[in-house]
Amino acid sequence: MKTIVLIKQVPDTETKVKVNPGETDINREGINLVLNPYDEFAAEEAIKIKEAKGGEVVVCTLGEKKAEEAIRTALAMGADRAIRLDGEAFAGSDNYATAKALAKAIEKEGDYDLILCGKQAVDDDSAQVGTLVAEMLGIPSASLVINCEVGDGSVTITREIEGGNQELEIAMPCLLTAQKGLNEPRYPSLPGIMKAKRKKLDVLSAGDLGLGADEAGAAGSKTAIKELSMPPERKAGQVFEGEPEEIVPKVAQLLREEAKVI
């Protein structure tokens, strides 16, 4: 059983994000970067499956050298080896171009039974890459998975849907995106962290994946970020004092005329 886990390094959730005017990325200075929390669920699930069924867990990311920190976290948890996609050609990749590169890398790797990834990355929250990869590979996929039982040639999963759960059986190979609740990700142990450094890590370029100049990075993207801005600062609230008979009509009037909510 070979499981591929797609991961991303993201600013930790405590980060106070800053945007510099005119720039299309957040200010990354001094930010503490971690493995995307939803990807931890994906990695944990893959490792649990390996522990139960045997086989191999390969983690894959598109990212700069620094993203190896996140890779090492997954390796320290128990993944076996890693692939990192890097190079100028990937600069400016949007979700589509990222998915394309990952799909190519997965095809090159071959022989996989299952692909797992987080339901979304907590930095851009777009929740697209996993499903796009599945489409590009022509395999079935399910999102928001909170339970997963691997059977013979198929997986039975439970996924979250509006107001309830849905149970599905999906033929493998397939791709699943992990939702909180799927499992309790383990902490990497110290021996795990020490071993992670010695595990195999391949770095592949767009060329290695056979991607043409117009298929990767900004050129291969369908979208481009024009501008980032911070949400407008919240205005101070208004406090009304007095007898209810007096203030309720005032509040109602403001809600209708200014806030336009009733």
Partner: peptide
């Protein structure tokens, strides 16, 4: 330093 950083983070 990488290993120290990994251990520190964990």
């Amino acid at each position: 330093a990488d290993m120290l950083n990994d251990m520190m983070q964990q």
